[in-house]
Amino acid sequence: MYRWQIASTIAEHGVVGIVRATDSQSARQRAAACLHAGLEVLEVSLTTPGATTVLRELRDEYPNALLGAGTVLDATSARLAVDAGARFLVAPSLHEEVISTGHRYGAAVLPGVDTPSELVRALESGADAIKLFPASRWTPESMRDVLAALPQAPLVPTGGVSVDRAPDWIANGAVAVGMGSGLSEGDQAEATERISGLLRGIRQARG
């Protein structure tokens, strides 16, 4: 899969599920709950102990899922994540070495930005999409104002995006949203209902 196909799949799906846990077993359980519920794009945060092992296991068990790594802070972490099966890399900040390393090995990269100046730098650095982080410091409307000046920016608001408000971000121009542990809370039936409703809301927001 080429980088443009990876970015296109993220945009088409509209949601990047984020798995972050205090141990690898919990991470696998949360990931499985999301994937079984119909989520097709998932990142495992490298803050999770054994994150690369979790990625390898998920890659083998769910070959059709688009898996990525989150909280990628340097070139070494980027290479290890790609070797473990990550096809996209997400960072909370903007580091050109993460972008260049990810691209060298075929991964799409979504660096984190919080200002229009950082957003422009990310575009100049070749970001495949851009994580607007933390989204809690923005609103869908303020993001739309930035996109009026920079309509070429493929933004993925992350950090504080709720299931209820996710469609608002999409309706105001985001290509996708990043969402964490709230997706997999409760039992499998609850997770499935929540994720199904989220995906349905995103489709409706796109018209």
Score class of each variant (00 low, 15 high):
Asp168Gln: 14
Val156Met: 11
Gly173Ser: 05
Ser142His: 14
Asp145Phe: 13
Ser142Gln: 13
Trp138Gly: 01
Ser125Cys: 10
Glu118Phe: 03
Ala135Asp: 08
Pro154Val: 09
Val175Ser: 01
Arg137Gly: 10
Gly106His: 05
Glu124Arg: 14
Trp138Ile: 01
Tyr105Ser: 00
Pro151Asp: 06
Asn172Asp: 07
Asp128Ser: 15
Ile130Tyr: 01
Pro167Arg: 12
Met143Thr: 08
Gly159Ser: 07
Ile170Thr: 03
Arg144Ala: 15
Ser142Ile: 08
Ile130Asp: 02
Arg165Leu: 12
Gly102Val: 04
His103Ala: 04
Ile170Ser: 02
Ile170Gln: 01
Arg104Ile: 00
Pro140Gly: 05
Ser136Asp: 10
Met143Ser: 13
Ser125Arg: 13
Leu150His: 11
Ser117Glu: 07
Pro111Arg: 08
Arg121Ser: 15
Tyr105Met: 06
Pro111Phe: 05
Leu119Cys: 12
Pro111Gln: 02
Val113Met: 12
Ser136Val: 08
Thr101Pro: 05
Pro116Leu: 06
Ile170Met: 03
Asp145Asn: 15
Ala129Asp: 03
Arg165Pro: 03
Thr115Gly: 08
Ser142Phe: 15
Arg104Gln: 11
Pro134Leu: 05
Ala149Tyr: 14
Gln152Pro: 00
Ala153Asp: 05
Val175Cys: 11
Leu147Ser: 10
Gly173Cys: 04
Arg121Met: 11
Gly126Thr: 09
Leu110Val: 11
Val156Arg: 00
Leu110Ser: 08
Pro167Lys: 11
Arg104Lys: 09
Ser136Arg: 14
Phe133Tyr: 12
Leu155Gln: 08
Gly102Met: 02
Leu132Phe: 09
Lys131Thr: 05
Ser162Glu: 05
Leu110Cys: 13
Val146Arg: 04
Asp128His: 10
Ile170Leu: 11
Val175Asn: 02
Arg121Gly: 04
Ala174Ile: 00
Ala171Ser: 08
Leu119Lys: 06
Asp114His: 12
Gln152Met: 15
Ser136Cys: 09
Ala127Pro: 13
Ala127Leu: 13
Ser125Phe: 14
Gly102Lys: 01
Leu119Glu: 03
Glu141Thr: 15
Glu118Ile: 00
Leu147Ile: 11
Leu119Val: 00
His103Glu: 04
Ala148Glu: 14
Glu118Asp: 09
Val161Trp: 03
Thr158Val: 13
Glu124Thr: 15
Trp169Val: 03
Ala122Gly: 03
Pro134Gln: 10
Asp164Glu: 14
Pro167Ser: 11
Ala148Asp: 12
Glu118Arg: 07
Arg144Ser: 15
